[in-house]
């Protein structure tokens, strides 16, 4: 009879992971995901097709997981530069709580799962759009544009703009002009939103070597571009009313929200060169988040009111 002598070694971090479920959840970028869920939901409800609630829930869940998966892939690839910026240094991979390989596997598995679930359970056009969005964010934006050009978030903004189109496609199996306008609102909103952040975080982006607009073209040029994009966003925000997709109340609120956007952008444009605090840029950043949420909420309310009460254009 053989006897085994067992030597028990304490695992001091080299072996088993200490990553909690919360760390993996953080890889999904839950705050970004909440905006994705909301805009996809609006796209789905705005579609002229009644969707079964279970199918709608499945679609939203799949889109949310797909968006989260692209966030995990982004955090896997960007761990080196995330570690250099205070805003991102505490993310699970640069902080060492999740190993890079774990984040990559997590992102890939969820990408495949979310696209397959959306395709098999809801609609294949929506699934292919979700797959393209994940690819665009993880590969085109994260791996290519982000470290290469100051137009990174302009082009990359398309990834964040797709959810309402996916929501619409999940409901109808097609894509028309209406969801494309919702896409445009988010797409054109992205540059002023991120450049406002880039203005007051220019030092950190510079340290990480990311060619954001203020670091490449300078603060003055960035402020001018922010203003130009803000004017365009304010106009595009009115398109659903002009094209009769939404009623006058939407048009009125969109006009007020757009005027607010232009007003805050104007304050940024007038910001002094030596302004270290950059309060106008911080205010624009905060307002832009409110703007996007509010304009989609009003669009949703307009659509629901029209359906529920049969009020044309309300």
């Amino acid at each position: 009879m053989a006897f085994l002598n067992r030597t028990i070694l304490e695992d001091r971090g080299a072996g088993m992971s200490e990553a909690t479920a919360g760390d993996f959840f953080a890889l999904l970028k839950p705050r970004v995901m909440s905006l994705v869920v909301f805009t996809a939901f609006v796209g789905m409800v705005a579609a002229p097709v009644a969707v079964n609630p279970f199918i709608a829930l499945t679609a939203i869940l799949s889109i949310a997981i797909g968006a989260g998966a692209s966030g995990a892939l982004n955090m896997w690839y960007d761990a080196d530069i995330d570690a250099l910026m205070r805003r991102t240094a505490s993310r699970p991979v640069p902080a060492g709580r999740v190993k890079p390989g774990e984040a990559l596997a997590f992102g890939l598995v969820l990408s495949v799962l979310s696209v397959m679930a959306l395709g098999f359970l809801v609609d294949w056009l929506a699934a292919s759009l979700l797959a393209f969005t994940i690819f665009f964010y993880a590969v085109i934006y994260t791996m290519w544009l982000k470290r290469w050009t100051p137009q990174n978030i302009v082009i990359g903004g398309a990834a964040g703009a797709f959810p309402p189109v996916i929501g619409w496609a999940a409901a109808t199996g097609s894509v028309t002009l209406e969801p494309v306008i919702l896409f445009l609102i988010i797409f054109l909103w992205t540059p002023p939103h991120f450049w406002a952040l880039a203005l007051f975080k220019a030092d950190e982006y510079g340290r990480a070597g990311i060619p954001m607009m203020p670091n490449v073209a300078g603060a003055a040029s960035t402020r001018r571009q922010i203003f130009a994009y803000s004017v365009v966003v304010a106009i595009v925000g009115l398109l659903p009313w002009w094209l009769d997709y939404a009623g006058a109340p939407y048009g009125a609120v969109a006009a007020v929200l757009g005027a607010g956007f232009v007003w805050y952008a104007w304050k940024v444009l007038r910001m002094a060169d030596g302004d270290r605090e950059m309060r106008p840029a911080k205010l624009l950043f905060a307002y832009s988040l409110l703007y996007l949420f509010a304009i989609f909420a009003v669009y949703l309310a307009d659509t629901v009111a029209e359906r529920a009460f049969g009020l044309p254009g309300v």
Partner: peptide, 12 residues
């Protein structure tokens, strides 16, 4: 014969 096993920490 001697084998080595690893005992996970409380955190793990």
């Amino acid at each position: 014969m001697e084998i080595e096993t690893v005992k996970p920490t409380e955190a793990q």
